[in-house]
């Protein structure tokens, strides 16, 4: 037996660089020293926002792929699947929290940065349409770098198709809540992310349309230190609230109670 600690037990905090034990990160994955939030997986997010194990995944959709091949994409997909145990970057199901039933959809940034492709788009539309059919509120936890470039124009067309479905749900009088987590960018930010009745952001999330590097390269501006942070968007009136991770369940419960 090796005297080295088991792999994956310790993880360095990206912000304060301390080595933190898994138990210390806790279920919510918060650094005990500096309060940094590690990005949660879809599974962790579902645990956080459902009571017990009350999450019933939506039925599988027929598989379809884009009719063209981008070099290296299949390997990237395979790696992401292996790493996350997910087939794609979005998971949705019917969930229960504090006595309320709703459709919960979660994007996973660990899967190719939660990017929008034809499968993620189809699952998003499925979640939205299921909420409409079952007359349930829809809660989306968003974490995405935007449209997935490897699927080209068909990724881009998820923006208008998902937004159209989302608007139909809003028109049906059902409560919609989006929780923007780190990161919420590009094609996701510029389509359905802000289309909800209530838009919350998790503290510390980066939210914006263009990426910081792109902005620096095209505008040659020096970016403010709080640029594209949840706090700055809140001050600009673009968000209803910035919520601490430990408080998110309580805020979501409150909103569900009121609707």
């Amino acid at each position: 037996m090796s005297h080295f600690p088991k792999k994956g037990l310790w993880q360095q905090c990206p912000r304060c660089h301390r080595h933190v034990h898994r138990l210390e990160w806790g279920q919510l994955r918060i650094c005990p020293y500096c309060g940094y939030y590690l990005r949660l997986t879809a599974k962790q997010r579902i645990q956080q926002l459902t009571t017990g194990n009350d999450f019933i995944r939506l039925p599988k959709l027929a598989e379809h792929t884009v009719p063209f091949t981008f070099p290296g994409y299949q390997q990237k997909l395979a790696q992401a699947r292996e790493k996350t145990g997910l087939k794609e970057a979005f998971v949705a199901g019917q969930a229960q929290l504090a006595g309320a039933t709703f459709i919960l959809g979660v994007m996973d940034s660990h899967f190719m940065m939660g990017t929008l492709n034809i499968v993620v788009g189809a699952r998003l539309r499925q979640a939205i349409e299921t909420a409409k059919q079952r007359k349930l509120p829809l809660i989306l936890v968003i974490a995405s770098g935007g449209a997935r470039m490897q699927e080209g124009i068909l990724s881009l067309l998820q923006m208008n198709t998902v937004l159209a479905a989302y608007d139909a749900l809003n028109a049906a009088g059902l409560f919609t809540l989006n929780i923007l987590t780190d990161p919420t960018m590009g094609g996701v930010s510029a389509s359905f992310a802000f289309a909800a009745d209530i838009v919350l952001a998790e503290a510390g999330a980066t939210i914006g349309f263009a990426g910081k590097r792109v902005i620096e390269a095209t505008s040659h501006e020096v970016l403010p230190t709080d640029f594209q942070t949840a706090d700055s968007l809140y001050r600009q009136g673009q968000l209803d609230a910035v919520v601490q991770r430990s408080n998110l369940t309580a805020v979501v419960s409150q909103l569900l109670r009121l609707h």
């Binding site: 937004l163 159209a164 608007d167 389509s191 359905f192 802000f194 289309a195 914006g208 792109v214 902005i215």
Partner: peptide, 27 residues
Amino acid sequence: PGAAADVAAERTGQSQAIAATIRQMGQ
């Protein structure tokens, strides 16, 4: 080129403005 990528555009709601145009065009 792409939509404006600068500090002012982000601050004044580029994401929401684009989403609103997608919506209005679609409807």
